[in-house]
Amino acid sequence: MKKLKRVFTYLFLSVAAIVSIFPFLWMLVSMTNKSVDVTAGRLIPGTHFIENLKNLLDQTQIGIALWNSFVIAIITTVLTLLIGSLAGYGFEIFRSKGKDIVFNILVLSMMIPFAAIMIPLYRLFGRISADAPLIGLDTLAAAFLPTIITAFFIFFFRQNTKMFARELVEAGRIDGLSEWGIFFRIYMPTMKTTYAAAAIIAFMNSWNNYLWPLVVLQSPNKQTIPLLISNLGAGYTPDYGVIMTAIVIATLPTALVFFLMQRHFVAGMMGSVKG
């Protein structure tokens, strides 16, 4: 009876694992096959990869899209971490009644669904387009500006700051460091793991963001990777081999981040619930 249960457990988990992995294997295999073979359901690797990659580079602006996505993701990650950690640190270390009230109000913004503010944001960027063309509609800046300051990261850093030894702040003050010096020279280096975890979340969110870039980025040379893939996928005569190559390229950075930094990755997810 016990043995039977064991067998059933392994069977169940194996099916779940296969279902989870299969789409990945399929896209890797399809990347090396001709479009007709993909439609015919071919499940063994082919020799068409170079051809697919060449077509992808010729027919789409994947290079530009990759560049745009990287620029947006890197700027977003750096600014998100900087601004979020400053605030998380500020709320926890310089705690006061007034700041606690402000904190609770900011946290409420986590409940606001993006769909609810999308239209006013779009109109806001539309209005400033004429005066400030560098951050108006259809600019990379417009795609990341509303995403860099979020209550989630303030909350995240505040939770993690609770574990930061306050004696280090006192020691810094005695050594004559300014409050900013303490933050940049003591807090930041000691909280490396927290920053790593936050960086992973911020990078992935930005890399995969779809709706807001879809709304603000209109010209083809401003496209990000998700927009490019969405357009390819919606085409009437899709070249499956080419699309699969694009999807693999799009998934590569996040998959790499996951496999190289698995520990931080999970820490990042958990950091959002602690406390």
Binding site: A87, I154, F183
Partner: peptide, 30 residues
């Protein structure tokens, strides 16, 4: 110190007000 503390959080307060709360009010007016 209290004043410096506010400097640490001011960017976030402005950002969230501009990109969340202001659009929220605007959406209601709209």
């Amino acid at each position: 110190k209290n004043y410096i503390g506010w400097l640490f959080i001011i960017l976030s307060v402005l950002g969230i007000s501009l990109f969340y709360f202001y659009p929220m009010v605007q959406a209601f007016l709209l």
